[in-house]
Design a protein around this nucleic acid. Structure first.
Length: 372
DNA sequence: TTTGAGCGG
């Protein structure tokens, strides 16, 4: 076994770090568990700001185990640190296998209590009670090493009292999955229909007349301003999902008062707001990207590569707004950045140049992480 | 009410 493989086995990942936590601070803390070979706080290559996680490499596996058992969730700079075995293979983390979501947690339940309690069902990779400065947010996550442990936890704990609260325990679903699930549930049963763009000349009677042909209506309402004038949109509530569905299918895009109307499932205010917010943020992101261009981090640069040479190598992929090889005392630090004006150019450059040998070394290219 | 974030040299 080579040295690297040996110490990798005694490596802990330390997450949720306050940006002010230093290597020195970590070294002092973890040395209490046993001799520490090295510490690495991961930092932004340009700003050197902490990315909020670090590695602690012990000489002895048993010491790493001891640290994991005794120091998880300890406070550093006012934040609870989260320890895991260093696991380079992202598969388990990304796949969500074994990940459990818990809500309606009693506010007194903290990270350690949650961890201890759920340890009864199997080995835990990572767990956390979500919190803010007010304390627990009342929900959290326990990621088990395997699905069978997760299933046991769900089976045994869902709907049970934990401290003074009856908790929900279920498989973790990503926000995207969950939203899609809610949408499909809502769209398979809706009876309320939203109609817009029918202009000023519309009243309840007329709207009812138009939509009654799809089924029984329970209520029909054209929304009006204080003077009683139509706001151009309204709602029709049917007594069956079939009628509502048919109304949407047949009336969406049809012309009323000479203009095409929109007809769709009526969303709850919060749902619509969330959708708009997401759209708005997406647009904002694209605007910012359009203005700033897309930054690529170029790592593993040969020492002989300077700004000039780097620009030359990447110029064929598009217009470059900025090139920088990081230097220290006139010496290349072995990494730099290239900023393209569009994501298409950057993507192309990355696809073609990643792994390319320049000088004596193979380029390692990554998209720049975004902050704030 | 509440379905994270996260892996180097």
């Amino acid at each position: 076994m080579d040295i690297e493989a040996k110490y990798r086995m005694a490596s802990l990942y330390v997450g949720d770090l306050h940006a002010d936590v230093t290597e020195d601070l970590l070294f002092k803390k973890f040395s209490a568990a046993g001799p520490v070979l090295s510490i690495r706080i991961c930092r932004d290559v340009v700003t050197r700001r902490s990315l909020g996680y670090a590695y602690v490499n012990f000489l002895q596996l048993a010491d790493a185990q001891k640290a994991l058992d005794t120091m998880n969730f300890d406070m550093m700079k006012g934040r609870s640190i989260r320890l895991m075995w260093s696991q380079r293979d992202a598969h388990l983390r990304k796949s969500g296998v074994g990940n459990v979501f818990i809500k309606n947690l009693d506010k007194s339940i903290d990270n350690k209590t949650l961890h201890e309690h759920f340890s009864a069902f199997g080995k835990i990779l990572s767990s956390k009670v979500m919190s803010d400065d007010q304390g627990s947010k009342g929900y959290g996550f326990v990621h088990f090493q395997n699905q069978s442990a997760a299933d046991r936890a769900i089976e045994e704990m869902n709907g049970k009292l934990f401290k003074d609260c009856r908790v929900f325990v279920g498989r973790f679903k990503s926000r995207k999955d969950r939203e899609a699930e809610l949408r499909s549930k809502a769209s398979s049963a809706f009876t309320n229909v939203y109609i817009k763009n029918f202009g000023d000349h519309m009243d309840d009677e007329r709207l009812k007349e138009v939509f009654s042909k799809y089924g029984n209506t329970l209520s029909v309402k054209v929304m009006t301003d204080s003077s009683g004038k139509s706001k151009g949109f309204g709602f029709v509530s049917f007594d069956s999902h079939e009628a509502a569905k048919k109304a949407v299918e047949e009336m969406n895009g049809k012309a009323i008062n000479g203009q095409p109307i929109f007809v769709g499932r009526a969303q709850k205010k919060g749902e619509r707001q969330a959708e708009l917010k997401q759209m708005f943020e997406q647009m904002k992101k694209e605007r910012i990207r359009g203005r700033q261009g897309v930054k690529l981090y170029i790592k593993n640069l040969d020492d002989t590569i300077d700004d000039e040479k780097l620009r030359k190598e990447f110029s064929s992929f598009g217009s470059i707004s900025r090139v920088k090889v990081m230097q220290e005392e006139g010496q290349s630090k072995g990494f730099g950045l290239v900023c393209f004006s569009s994501s298409e150019e950057a993507t192309k450059a990355m696809a073609e140049m990643n792994g390319r040998i320049l000088g004596s070394k193979a380029l390692n290219i990554a998209l720049a992480q975004r902050h704030n």
